[in-house]
Computed example of a mutant assay.
Amino acid sequence: MSDLKIAWVTDSTACRSEGIRNNEDVYIVPMNILIGNKEFKDGVDLFPEEMFRLLKGNGADAKTSQPSIGIFQELYTNLQEEYDHIFSIHVSLAFSGTFSSAQQAAQLVDIPVTVIDSKILSYPLTKLILDGMEAAEKGLDPAEIEKFLEAKLNTGKTFVMVGSLEQLHKSGRMNGLSFFLGSMLKIKPILLIEDGKLQVEEKVRSIPKGYSRMRDYLDHALQSKNIKEVYILYGLNKEEADAWVADLSGKYPEISFSSHELGAVIGVHAGENTLGISWFAE
């Protein structure tokens, strides 16, 4: 049984749920958001509602950037005075270089640091941290916890219906021709995030159609997988996300559904009306 004191480090793409927001052993490193000529720290001095207000009011573009190696090195160095081990779990390497910054910083400190590419973002990333903390409480040592988390993250699947083609285009995730055609036809792409990679699953022309397709994806997954929890992800449209939760809870009473905010950094790329569905299979 392990009695090591473990610190849990993540970045601000993780959903700040109750379980990590008020936990003294969890440390969230903010991503950077640049709007116009002003830089903000995600979740520190800029939150989704204010960010979208600034984008609308100023007509400015927003850009995001990862924390530096130095930021992680300083945090790890400070943590080694109080902790025996650090788990540093971050947004998918396919979306950001944050994992690489953390990995390089881990080589520069004396405390052992296990750096994990979550292959995901938002609440599923938070869920990995919560499950890792639970595994540690059960007495698993760091190597066992890492093995457990790596196995879990490889069962994850997420579908996201992008709320703004314009934001997706500005962020560099969609080329000019696709943006033009999508805007003209009022198309909403549904993106699949699986094994850390992003791809267009299909294109729909309305939110109701997108929701119908996401229910189909869940139905299909349930034919061969045991899924106990499903997460609805949203930009600013919490009421719509909660309506999805209520509807899905009625259809699948054996599954626990919950809604979670995507956050400002993800909103920069996807837009405030984004909706998604995510799960890990047992």
Rank of each mutant, 00 (worst) to 15 (best):
H90V: 08
K56Y: 02
G70A: 03
K56S: 06
D61W: 12
E24S: 13
N37A: 15
Y27G: 00
L55K: 00
S17R: 10
S92F: 13
I86V: 08
D45I: 02
S12W: 13
D61L: 15
A60K: 05
I71H: 02
S12H: 12
L4A: 07
Q80H: 06
C15M: 14
S92Y: 12
I35D: 12
E74Q: 09
W8M: 02
E81T: 03
E49C: 04
I6G: 03
T10F: 04
L55N: 01
T77F: 01
V91A: 08
Q66Y: 00
S68D: 08
Y27R: 01
R53N: 14
S68N: 04
I71C: 06
D84M: 06
F87A: 11
N78P: 00
E74C: 04
Q66A: 01
D11P: 14
I20L: 05
V9N: 03
D45Y: 05
F52M: 03
N22W: 13
E18F: 14
S88I: 06
Y76V: 11
E82R: 12
F72W: 03
T77V: 00
E81R: 09
V91T: 14
E81G: 05
A7I: 04
A60E: 15
G57K: 09
Q73K: 15
L54R: 08
I71W: 00
N32T: 09
E18D: 15
A14Q: 09
P67M: 03
L46P: 07
V91E: 02
V91N: 07
Y76F: 11
S12V: 01
D11L: 07
D61Y: 12
E18V: 05
L4E: 12
T64P: 03
V26E: 09
E24Q: 10
V26K: 10
V44R: 03
Q66I: 01
G57R: 07
G59F: 07
N58W: 03
F40T: 11
N58I: 12
G70R: 13
N23E: 06
E74L: 06
P67A: 02
K63I: 10
E49T: 15
Q80W: 06
